[in-house]
Write a protein that binds this DNA or RNA. Structure first.
Length: 649
RNA sequence: GCGGGCGUAGCUCAAUGGUAGAGUUCCAGUCUUCCAAACUGGCCACGUGGGUUCGAUUCCCAUCGCCCGCUCCA
């Protein structure tokens, strides 16, 4: 996955990005800041194109999706309701021996004998100290045995403090002076460590583990000091795999915290959103009431999100400040669909299920969105062969998710997630209903009408299933049984009156990841050899014309002819209002083409002497040069704009 | 957060305990003709902070950043 060749490719991509102004490191002049990236001129255009394509595909070209633009900082209760405050602040601890990281609340409690060590020192230094003491009994007022036992127990405070009083010599140059003795002890002699042994295991294995630990600290041949044994019940302070002591739990704060208002007390704490989705849920009722939409419909949002990633890696792939393009598509619960349509339509095999139908249940809606999203990626130049679909296994799903498909891209550093399309049931709206006390249910005329036509057996059956589904959610969320049953009963009665909490399908994509995928996919190298046999490698960024930062380069063939320049500028001015165009007259024409190849500009227009009428039949025509094969064709200036627009939209 | 590697011009790479050099890019100019042409001229660098030293880009320490592995990935 990370073979040298692929790392080299990634390095080339990073270097190109910086060199041509796609991506810079944030705050670079101050040494940079990990996990933050800026987009340069070309990157900004590329990103804007991608976001605008997403937006128009998802909202403007659809009848059933509307937009939202919410704030980054919201009421902190939102993040309690969403579960982020809890899950983003897991206390973590590390194994002192293997450095493996654990979530403190997920360590298995264990019982057994704990072997504590006060420290360790080099065996050689220990022996030397002991021999020195034993061979000079007359240097101490107390017994030599006592001094040695203090040494073995690692009770160095006493060795260096109390013991000093019992030494005969007060001469600091004497080999028995405190400083001289301490010097002999060597490094790392008082780092406390412990190993938990399950009952029945020999103490030797605890010592062996401890020796490993101290030798990792840099003691070559450790002599363990101050061993003592303690019986411990149900402790989570030890690594279940090897018994090693863990570091004390440290809270991991994965959300960015800030304070709202002039005072900075706990009361004022707020968070920068870690995802854009929650605002959509929080504003669901407002949008429903003001957009004249009815379920099924969606709300789309593009915006920044912030996560304190443990390890920002792989260029912009995992950034701490990033941008998301999220859709929450609200659908009727399957029970409601069943009542209205008589039966719930489920997927018939793989592939796009076609135009949405009233009978669709959540599974087919989910598949629909997976296929829609892949279609989008294909439309901006990521062939299906570069993508992978990953259906999360039941045990990988978050507890509220019914299904989740990751759309992965084959990055040079590995196949990684571009977008997740989750079927999230009615979890999110239910959470916000519970936490805010506001209703998140919708009224569905069709449902009420259809319900009236059901026979009693069917009513009872559907009602019972909806009741069970609601009860499952409520009890899982920690609502006490009696209350949960009462609420679920109300919900089931609501269904009979045409009310329900919508379920949701969530296609959630990372803009920056997509940009990186587009850049990696577009990157290609062309090696040419000239007449003198000198070969050189040039980079061509093969962006799809729809996303390319610059759509067209406009050049006068030569710089020193004012007529050419005037005509070229005229052509440039006629295009720039319609697309991102770039005028360049610096250097030889081949150099200008090469520069545009690196920027990924799909078309270059050159104004030459024929344009000015040197060959009368070519008057007011220009050459258009194609980026990917270098081929040229000749076109009247009057047709240029239409020709280009047809290819960049 | 841990372990390993790296840090000289926009890029690729030199040299040096005593004024840092080349190619390329970039900028300006010459040239009537299409794929980084040639020629002329020009701009630009020792990641940061300490220490050792008369003097540090060079030696030492710390720090920051990047890359790789581990860890994390709601």
């Amino acid at each position: 996955m990370s073979e040298p060749k692929e790392n080299v490719l990634m390095e080339k991509i990073v270097s190109l990005c910086k060199r041509r102004g796609f991506v810079y490191q944030s705050s670079e002049i101050y040494g940079g800041i990990q996990g933050f990236w800026d987009y340069g001129p070309l990157g900004a255009e590329l990103k804007r194109n991608v976001k605008e394509l997403w937006w128009s595909t998802m909202t403007r070209l659809r009848d059933d999706v509307v937009g939202l633009e919410a704030t980054i900082i919201m009421a902190p209760q939102i993040w309690r309701a969403s579960g982020h405050v809890d899950t983003f602040c897991d206390p973590m601890c590390d194994c002192l021996l293997t450095k493996k990281r654990f979530r403190a609340d997920q360590v298995e409690p264990q019982s057994g004998n704990v072997f504590w060590f006060i420290g360790a020192m080099e065996t050689e230094a220990f022996e030397e100290c002991r021999n020195l003491i034993q061979e000079n009994p007359n240097q101490f007022t107390c017994s030599v045995e006592k001094v040695v036992s203090l040494l073995e127990a690692g009770r160095l405070v006493e060795l260096s403090g109390d013991l000093a009083a019992s030494m005969q010599s007060r001469d600091s140059e004497s080999p028995f002076s405190v400083p001289k003795l301490l010097l002999k002890l060597g490094p790392h002699y008082f780092k406390e460590y412990a190993v938990m042994l399950p009952p029945g295991k020999p103490p030797e294995s605890a010592r062996k583990t401890a020796l490993q630990y101290y030798s990792k600290l840099g003691i070559k041949a450790p002599k363990l000091l101050g061993e003592r044994v303690e019986k411990v019940e149900n402790s989570t302070r030890f690594n279940p795999e090897n018994g090693s002591l863990l570091t004390p739990p440290v809270p991991f704060n994965l959300m960015f915290k800030t304070y709202v208002g002039p005072t900075a007390t706990e009361e004022d704490v707020a968070y920068l959103r870690p995802e854009t989705a929650q605002a959509i849920f929080a504003q669901f009722k407002n949008v429903l009431e003001t957009s004249r939409q009815k379920v099924p419909f969606g709300i789309a949002q593009v915006g920044k999100a912030f996560r304190n990633e443990v390890t920002p890696r792989n260029f912009t792939f995992r950034s701490r400040e990033f941008e998301q393009m999220e859709l929450e598509f609200f659908i009727k619960p399957d029970e409601a669909v069943e009542v209205i349509s008589g039966a719930v339509a489920t997927p018939k095999g793989a592939g796009h299920p076609g135009e949405p139908q009233p009978s669709w249940g959540w599974q087919i809606w989910h598949q629909y969105w997976v296929e829609e999203r892949i279609k989008f990626y294909e439309g901006i130049g990521l062939p299906r062969t570069t993508l992978e679909e990953y259906w999360q296994k039941p045990e990988e799903l978050a507890h509220y998710a019914r299904a989740c498909v990751d759309i992965l891209f084959k990055f040079p550093f590995g196949t990684q997630e571009l977008e997740g399309i989750a079927a999230r049931s009615d979890f999110d709206l239910s959470q916000h209903a519970r936490f805010s006390g506001k209703t998140m249910g919708v009224f569905d005329e069709d449902l009420r009408t259809a319900w009236g036509k059901l026979d009693d057996a069917k009513k009872k059956d559907v009602s019972e299933r909806y009741y069970q589904a609601r009860l499952r959610y409520l009890t899982k969320s920690g609502v006490e049984q009696a209350k949960a049953e009462k609420q679920a009963k109300e919900d089931a009665e609501g269904l009979a009156k045409g009310q329900y909490i919508p379920h949701v399908i969530e296609p959630s994509a990372g803009v920056d990841r997509l940009i990186l995928a587009l850049v990696a996919n577009a990157f290609s190298e062309v090696t040419t050899t000239d007449d003198k046999g000198k070969s050189e490698t040039r980079v061509v960024m093969k962006f799809h014309p729809r996303v390319a930062p610059i759509k067209v380069g406009v050049f006068p063939l030569l710089k020193n002819k004012p007529e050419l320049i005037a005509k070229a500028k005229e052509v440039f001015e006629s295009l720039r209002g319609h697309m991102m165009a770039f005028y360049d007259d610096a250097g030889a024409i081949g150099r200008r083409y090469a520069r545009q190849d690196e920027a990924g500009t799909p078309f270059c227009v050159t104004i030459d002497f024929d344009t000015l009428g040197e060959k009368p039949e070519l008057l007011n025509t220009v050459t258009i040069r194609h980026r990917d094969d270098g081929k040229q064709e000749r076109l009247p200036i009057a047709e240029l704009q239409g020709w280009l627009l047809a290819r960049i939209r």
